[in-house]
Amino acid sequence: MNFMYLYLPVALTSINILIPVGLGLAVGLLSGLFGVGGGFLMTPLLIMFGIPSTVAAATDSNQIVAASTSGTFAHWKVGNVDFKMGLYLLIGGFAGGLFGVHAIKILKATGNADFTIKMTYVIMLGVVGTYMLIESLNSMKKKKTEEVKAVKDSGFTRFLKSLPFQTRFEKSGVTHSALLPIIFGTFVGVLAAIMGVGGGFLMVPVMVYILRMPMHVVVGTSLFQILFNCIEVTFLQAYTNHNVDFILAVLLLLGSTVGAQIGAVFGRKLKGEQLKVILAAIVLAVTVKIIFELTLTPSLLLSQGGGH
């Protein structure tokens, strides 16, 4: 009997406890720092350590519930969660998720699902990462006053102001049409459902660049809406697919809840622009990794069915 290993009853495999705890800590740290769930990092890592892909994705949702609760709590304590904005985004995200699931069914029927999913993933990650990197590097050079002026003068901003149902979002210090977060929430929800990820890495840029929310409020609000998305996904995965491994989730959340708190503390010490640069670099690194996977001959040509 080796106490360093635990048997996972749903994944039907054994794992060294340091692996999920360590992975949880690292991904939780990113979650607390940037307001992303980290599914785009965690799920492939779990698969790499022998967890079946379907169990990896479902269990990751379960641990994100813990990490985002911990992260939301940490950010809420310092007033960095815009619950009103989060709620509108959630409504949109929920509707988008339903559309996305139907879109996948149609894609699968046409036989192009995997190609479309992979391509959407690479293009979205690449575009978002590159844009964030260039924009945040540029704005780090500029003075803040110039940036605010430029935003106020843009045609896009004027268009946004002309939309109906203008509402003040006090926490974020912005005024927008209530339709805006709902529409963009739907857009991210569709893409996230197609790609099979939580969509934090898409939602964060939407809040920063379109909704013009301050970066630190973005992180807290993103975690808040990720929390509710992942509660829904965890329940559906457990109920319909029986793919949530409770033991694995506990091991992951032991690390991720602590990581999310450390991330929130670290985040305080970094400026919004610095956070954006680091997140952009991570998103681009993941894009490069996926491009390598797509172009290099894989060692195994067969894999277990299901999963992302």
């Binding site: 379960n62 519930v65 813990a66 609760t69 409770f246 809840t257 708190q261």
Partner: peptide, 18 residues
């Protein structure tokens, strides 16, 4: 039941560590 327990445990862990 399993799904609800998994979610509650995650919520409790998140709040607990918080």
């Amino acid at each position: 039941f399993y799904g609800v327990i998994s979610i509650l445990a995650a919520l409790a862990a998140g709040f607990g560590v918080g």
